[in-house]
């Protein structure tokens, strides 16, 4: 498990100063400033300028800062990169990624700008959003395409449009894509991040979806409303029962190791390496997700 929690990534429209100003107060693990689909074509320059200014003047504490740029083929994406890389966000999110080459092309531009601006090369992270049928099929190559990648994400709306399917509450149409993406990400040792849940007033449906993706192995999910953060984190916080069990497993294996054995037994069940690894992961997740102290910003 890499250092950061990415249970929640809060989308903030790049042309909304009020939301940009307050984005850090809601407790999401990451903030994602959007220059792409939530910004009208006439507002692209405004948004780029605002996000650049926000990143270079406001203090967001230790929050991970992500900027979703426009895709490079639009001609706008390159202008976004020219400005945003210089503002030193943690991660650039590339939309509509279809092939590994898309990532490589974007990385080349980022590296060039880093050199030009005197920024340590490689310090800008990347994540790739997969939003099409071809992108899902190429998930593995995309996941392995760059060392900068911290994760790959599913963008459901465009994907479902591409499938000529419709969005359903239970998300049956996303099963294959979610399976591909989570598997590709884990194979590459990076994070798998799920799509947004648009019906912000349906908390029950949101929790059901969050529970599903957690079970599938996703590390987190994008959120479009701050109200979704608390329930999402609750889903990703291990239950007391699971915690007790994990601690018992760790105790049992410690005892077995002291005896010189790699296998232990707990309540008549065998405890071996993968079970220990899962217990360890759960305890780490719990430690990190414990009430975070307020940051001085």
């Amino acid at each position: 498990m890499s250092g950061r929690l990415r249970r929640s990534m809060l989308f903030v429209p790049g042309n909304n100063p009020g939301m940009i100003r307050d984005a850090h107060i809601y407790g999401s693990d990451s903030i994602m400033f959007d220059l792409e689909d939530s910004v009208a074509i006439t507002e692209k320059d405004t948004a780029r300028f605002l996000v650049y200014k926000a990143l270079t003047t406001l203090n967001y504490g230790k929050k991970e800062l992500v900027v979703r740029i426009n895709d490079l083929s639009s001609g706008i994406g390159i202008m976004d990169l020219e400005a945003i890389v210089r503002a030193r966000p943690d991660v650039i999110r590339l939309p509509k990624t279809e092939t590994a080459q898309d990532v490589i092309d974007c990385e080349r531009e980022i590296e060039r700008i880093e050199r030009e601006a005197g920024i340590p090369v490689g310090s800008t992270g990347m994540m790739a959003a997969i939003e099409s049928a071809i992108g899902v099929l190429n998930a593995k190559e995309i996941a392995f395409s760059s060392k900068r990648l911290i994760g790959i994400a599913l963008g459901a709306e465009d994907y479902v449009t591409d499938l000529k399917a419709t969005r359903s509450p239970e998300g049956i149409e996303l099963m294959f894509a979610r399976g591909m993406i989570v598997n590709a990400a884990k194979a590459a040792g990076i994070m798998a991040l799920d799509t947004v849940y648009s019906d912000v007033n349906n908390e029950e449906g949101f929790i059901a979806e969050a529970t599903l993706i957690r079970k599938m192995g996703f590390d987190g999910k994008s959120v479009i409303n701050p109200r979704q953060i608390r329930p999402l984190h609750a889903v990703f916080t291990p239950s007391e029962r699971d915690l007790k069990k994990a601690m018992a497993i760790m105790d049992a294996i410690a005892e077995a190791n002291a005896r010189g054995s790699g296998v232990a037994s707990l309540n008549g069940k065998m405890i071996d390496k993968p079970i220990v690894a899962r217990a360890q992961y759960l305890l780490e997740l719990y430690e990190r997700s414990k009430a975070m102290p307020v940051e001085e910003v």
């Binding site: 307050d22 007033n201 409303n225 701050p226």
Partner: peptide
């Protein structure tokens, strides 16, 4: 209210 800041 549904205002996230008021709720916070």
């Amino acid at each position: 209210t549904k205002n996230p800041k008021e709720l916070l």
